[in-house]
Simulated scan of single mutants.
Amino acid sequence: MTIEEKISHLQEAAMEEARAEGNRIMKQHETVLENIFEQHRAEAIRQSETRVKAEGVNAKQQLNMVMSKAQLELKRDFSKTRKTLKKELFVEVKEKLQEYMQTEEYKRMLVQYIEKSVKYANGEAMTIYINPSDADKKEYLEEHTGMTLTVSREDFIGGVRAVIHGRNILIDHAYKGALENEYHNFMFRGGAGDE
């Protein structure tokens, strides 16, 4: 073998060994880079999952706050509407009551109230009051009950009040107190969310 052949052979062997060493170093470096990449990828996934969970919790809290605010606003509107409807209803009730107070049936009811009061007094001295709006019915009521009636200075809307002086008893068949009591205790029933 000639020197040139030996140099060529030596050169090929050295190049092969250098290629093998370079491949080994590149493979080792590639493995290290893949490990670093996997660690970074795992950390990035972990951070993104944590961020997604945090954003989810934050979004849920914001949604709950918005829903709570909306529910509160709905309850306020519902309550306001309920109060408005209640007032309108009782305006209608008073109108119907005024219409009823112009009927013969109302006169007969006043007679019944007076007779019940007289029966309850059992002969004791008493004063029977009728509402100022019923002053036009005084003569009719006195004629049908045999009692002397007094027109009240206080407007109690309608009905009859009687005072038994000896026992300090007020017999109250007045509509004013009954209407106020009904208004105070009235609640709409049957709708969703009603108590």
Score class of each variant (00 low, 15 high):
Q47R: 14
I7R: 09
G22A: 14
G123T: 05
F186T: 05
Q112I: 08
H29A: 13
Q62N: 07
M67V: 11
Q61G: 02
M1Y: 07
I171F: 02
Q28S: 12
I45P: 00
G166W: 03
E124M: 14
Y100L: 10
E105V: 11
E12H: 12
Y175W: 10
A59Q: 07
L149R: 01
V93K: 01
G146I: 07
L97C: 06
I3M: 09
A135V: 11
S133F: 07
D77G: 13
L179A: 05
N23S: 05
L74N: 13
I164L: 11
L10E: 04
L179N: 02
V111R: 01
N58D: 10
T145V: 13
A42E: 12
A70Q: 11
A192E: 01
I169R: 00
Y100N: 05
T127I: 15
K94Y: 12
A125Q: 12
T84C: 07
F186A: 09
V118K: 10
S8F: 06
M187F: 02
K176C: 04
V66H: 15
Q11H: 06
S79L: 11
K86Y: 05
V52R: 15
E88C: 04
D155S: 07
K6E: 03
L89I: 04
T84S: 08
E99V: 08
L97A: 07
T84F: 08
E43Q: 11
E182N: 14
F188V: 00
I7V: 12
L149F: 02
D136F: 13
S152C: 06
M67C: 07
A162T: 12
E124I: 01
K60T: 03
L149K: 02
V57Y: 08
R19N: 06
T50L: 14
Y113H: 13
E88R: 03
G190E: 00
K27T: 12
G193E: 01
K86T: 15
E99K: 07
Y100I: 05
T150F: 09
E49C: 10
E17F: 15
N23Q: 10
N185A: 13
G191T: 00
T127W: 01
Q62K: 07
M126W: 05
G56K: 12
Y113D: 04
T145N: 02
A125W: 04
A162K: 00
R51S: 09
K119H: 11
E195L: 03
S68K: 07
A70L: 14
T31W: 10
H184Q: 13
E105N: 12
K69Y: 06
K75R: 09
V111M: 01
D136L: 11
M147P: 01
K80H: 12
